[in-house]
């Protein structure tokens, strides 16, 4: 017996099991394709559409299409700092600082005709850039922050609980009146031509 004959005899021992039914398998696969192709295609199409819409939303958000979000530089404790402002509702904006902390702002303005409208992002930006802040430090001293100025006003606080500070770093000067209320808070008003009166500041904060 030759090697070839031996080999063929041995290979003849290899047989599929009785359950092998290739024809049934092929027919089943063809029928399954008809049943499953359409839902699969639909699912793929829907997923692709969702991904596309999400991608467009993310792109629009990142590019600030529609003006819902803006990064601006504001004065924070005397340093120019980039913050993000985004509109969260008609009258509300959210400011995000570099450390991830948030603060809300917003409000309304009255038009010359007496109608009320929400503040725009431009107005919020203008407000933040010219914002004056008063804080009490850990050492118990009172500090006034305006643009890149950090001013110790502790010694200027009168017995009536207010201080008036003039800041001049350009052609125009800022006249600032800071009033301490009875609850540990502050009221601040600025004027271009003179100091606002402490009474008007107290009235504005309802003290």
């Amino acid at each position: 017996m030759t090697n070839r004959e031996r080999y063929k005899n041995a290979a003849e021992l290899v047989k599929p099991s009785g359950s092998l039914d290739t024809m049934a398998y092929v027919e089943e696969q063809i029928m399954n394709r008809k049943k499953t192709r359409r839902p699969l295609r639909t699912l793929i199409t829907v997923c692709a559409c969702v991904v596309l819409v999400l991608a467009l939303c993310v792109t629009a958000y990142a590019a600030d299409i529609g003006g819902v979000r803006r990064s601006i530089n504001v004065w924070l404790h005397g340093d120019l700092t980039e913050v993000t402002i985004e509109q969260v509702s008609e009258y509300e904006y959210r400011i995000t600082y570099p450390d991830g902390s948030h603060r809300g702002t917003g409000g309304a303005v009255f038009t010359p005709g007496g109608k009320e409208r929400p503040m725009t992002l431009d107005e919020i930006e203008e407000l933040l850039i010219s914002e004056v802040v008063c804080e009490r430090g850990d050492d118990g001293r009172y500090w006034l922050y305006i643009r890149d100025h950090k001013i110790d006003i502790t010694d200027q606080i009168t017995g009536n609980g207010y201080a008036q500070v003039k800041v001049k770093d350009g052609v125009l000067a800022d006249y600032i009146t800071v009033v301490m209320n009875n609850h540990g808070g502050y009221g601040i008003q600025t004027g271009r031509n003179g100091f606002p009166s402490p009474e008007s500041v107290r009235n504005s904060i309802g003290d």
């Binding site: 080999y7 005899n9 041995a10 290899v14």
Partner: peptide, 11 residues
């Protein structure tokens, strides 16, 4: 076939 089985096993 034991001979065929042996060859198959070897292959």
């Amino acid at each position: 076939d034991p001979e065929g089985s042996g060859l198959l096993d070897a292959v």
